[in-house]
Computed example of a mutant assay.
Amino acid sequence: MPRFAANLSMLYTEHDFPDRFAAAAADGFEGVEYLFPYAYEAAGLRRLLDSHGLRQVLFNAPPGDWDAGERGLTSLPGREAEARAGVERALEYAAALGCGQVHLMAGLVPEDATPELRARHRETYLANLAWAAERAAAAGVDLLIEPINGRDMPGYFLHRQAEAHAVVREVGAANLKVQLDLYHCQIVEGDLTATLRRDLPTGRVAHLQIAGVPDRHEPDEGELNLRHLMGVVDELGYDGWVGCEYHPRAGTSEGLGWLKHYRGASA
């Protein structure tokens, strides 16, 4: 049976962020994820997790200047020192929160980038990932990379599942894994059942995420057949978390009817 984690950056936005932990627990979630913890002290976040019986399953390393449009640093030439300092900060939070997974966002490539510049981005990406994976291994943390669709995030360095798996194989670190967001994957390449059956058995996929396609609302409408896909996930023996990373159509709790199939009528 899938283990669903509430993404507190997108769900329960009708509450202030610290109050979202209680709301998620009240709706039966046992795990949470969100984009970034750094606006809050780690000790305070840990108290929220513990007081509501929640596990922190994922967050992102610092992405650069998010408000200015940056979407990660890992592939950006000339920003290596900042990217690596961000990894160190993320690992400090991971230790405090008991979180075993951190997502490293790759960053954006200029639309008019030459092949030579794109090659530099890839070289920087591989070098930073290798360095970060070594640091994270010493802390018992897995690092994740995620292909993201170009409609929602134009210019993002990593788009396709095969590209992500090639990077993981090339770096060759046991704790570098792929974050498979079925929403992004459906938009970019589709064929989700075949993708799951191809990639989950490799052991390189450490985290799944879901949302309805095309509008990124609850996963009970649109192009995804969630029950079928979660059946495939169960069939393949996946034991990780499934992050609920979508924008509710209305109130978060009111839109959780899709969970009844997995939790019973009390969900």
Rank of each mutant, 00 (worst) to 15 (best):
L192V: 08
M1K: 04
G64N: 02
F4S: 09
G243M: 05
D191W: 01
I187N: 11
F157N: 08
P18D: 11
A6P: 04
A61N: 08
N128I: 10
G53V: 09
L196M: 12
I210W: 04
L49Q: 06
A113K: 03
R79Y: 03
K177S: 03
R120D: 10
G78H: 07
A26N: 14
M1I: 04
K177Y: 01
L182P: 10
R46L: 12
V141L: 15
D199C: 05
P18Y: 00
R135Y: 01
D234K: 00
G72Q: 03
A164R: 00
R55E: 12
V242R: 11
I187Q: 13
D199M: 02
G190K: 10
T252R: 11
L73H: 10
L48E: 14
A164Q: 00
V102Y: 00
H103Q: 14
P248A: 13
L176R: 00
L73D: 00
D67V: 04
P154K: 09
G28N: 10
P110N: 08
G190Y: 07
D234V: 12
L45P: 07
N60V: 11
L176T: 00
E223D: 13
H159D: 13
G243H: 02
Q56M: 12
V32R: 01
R120M: 11
D16C: 05
G251C: 15
G257S: 15
C99E: 04
L208P: 05
E30H: 07
M105V: 02
G53E: 03
G28D: 06
N7T: 10
E189F: 09
L104S: 07
T202G: 11
P18H: 02
A95L: 04
V205Q: 04
L259T: 11
E245P: 10
S266A: 15
G203K: 00
S51E: 15
G107K: 02
H52L: 11
T252Q: 13
P154C: 05
W66V: 13
P77V: 09
F59Y: 03
P219C: 12
V32T: 11
R263I: 01
A85C: 06
E33D: 13
D239R: 15
L97A: 05
A106Y: 02
L208A: 06
A137K: 12
A39H: 12
E146F: 02
G255N: 07
V171I: 14
V87M: 06
A174G: 13
L192E: 01
D16G: 03
G237K: 09
V168E: 00
